[in-house]
Design a protein around this nucleic acid. Structure first.
Lengths: 201, 201
DNA sequence: CTGGATCCTGTACAGTTGTACATGTACAGA
DNA sequence: TCTGTACATGTACAACTGTACAGGATCCAG
């Protein structure tokens, strides 16, 4: 109680944290629906249901807003994958693992095309803005570690390289899916085949 | 005048065609460097070295400009792949074909990161704008037909499905490459492995 | 040469957008 | 209760952007 902050229940979560998060979610939705070109203070504020002034209170600039939005989704995805990995999502036999893996990778996104589009948009933006690279790289790393773990369970050789390959391939598959709005069942079947082929000795 | 135009040597290429193309190329460069968000009449005009007024003369609107830019790159890519396929680019033995194929897919892009970024940006935009879908689909189809032809040469079963899989996977690999600016030699080696695995019986 | 079509461009302007800031309000600690 | 700090927002404005358009240059058939 003495020394470090005692009475404050949550010094890491200042009062405005919820609103800040709401603004970030709104930014992601705006990007998903209209691309980064559609991001402006007024659109984001309206989407979040807050007044215009809030956007300049929580973010230094428009670029900052986009940068935080990337960190936001990257952090969320990384955490989700870690949780999925530590929880027993992959604890099925090697025969079922490819299906299970495909579901984990796909399912979380299948329902939310807008967020998925925003993720690609932000990922692409990170190719152009060096300040966005660290967050994008953490995201990538979490994704690959997740896949590597699965590949190890499948007994695939050189799992690090295979994870790289699988990460990129599945990304492409998902991009194709989101662009063409293909049927989810087709996507799943293609993902499973891809996983099996890349895991094969 | 009577009947079909006789004297006109090139009724399909009106006088301003070159300038129009220059504007489209400029648009692609602007997109590649700053995303679709960076596209505005003045930036494109400056990039093309033409006055502002030209942009409104050749395009109905900013959206139209972006749409034509997508059609421009899609058409160019489709033609390139068809030419590559009909010229003997793939006429090597099945042992060398994967390497050759990887080179064709990669090499044309390796040198021009900006154009590649623009292509992804535009492809993503086509996921949001229905009017861009036809061009994006023609692009996709040309890409897949090229890959299918190669897969047939490799004796892969179900080449249509495999081409779909390979198309998406290579796209993902390239996206990863362009985002992380990875070494081209790594990219090539990964692409070859992917081709071999997807072509395998 | 003439007339008309096409090509071209500088300028103007209304609408939009990023951002600053003055003016508050809520709340924790003294 | 007082006070400082974080939270909040309406308003203002300079800069930017899309687009219209008047007027001019160039070309070519007749």
């Amino acid at each position: 109680m003495a020394g470090a902050g005692a009475t404050a229940p949550d010094s890491a979560a200042p009062r405005g944290a919820a609103r800040r998060r709401a603004l970030l979610d709104a930014t992601v939705r705006v990007i998903g629906r209209g691309g980064i070109a559609a991001v402006d203070h007024r659109a984001v504020a309206a989407e979040a249901g807050v007044p215009l002034g809030s956007t300049t209170y929580y973010f230094d600039s428009k670029d900052d807003m986009v940068a935080r939005a990337l960190e936001h989704v990257a952090e969320r995805e990384a955490e989700r994958l870690r949780a999925e990995s530590e929880g027993g999502a992959l604890d099925v036999g090697p025969y079922l693992l490819p299906e299970r893996l495909a579901d984990v990778v796909i399912h979380a996104w299948a329902g939310d095309r807008v967020t998925l589009l925003a993720q690609y948009e932000l990922y692409l933006e990170s190719a152009r803005r060096p300040d966005l690279r660290p967050a994008a790289e953490r995201w990538d790393r979490a994704y690959r570690e997740f896949l590597q773990h699965a590949l190890e369970l499948l007994g695939a050789p050189d799992p690090s390289r295979r994870a790289h390959l699988l990460c990129a391939s599945l990304d492409g598959l998902l991009l194709d899916h989101v662009a063409t709005a293909s049927a989810p069942s087709d996507l799943r079947s293609l993902a499973v085949e891809l996983i099996e082929r890349i895991a094969a000795p």
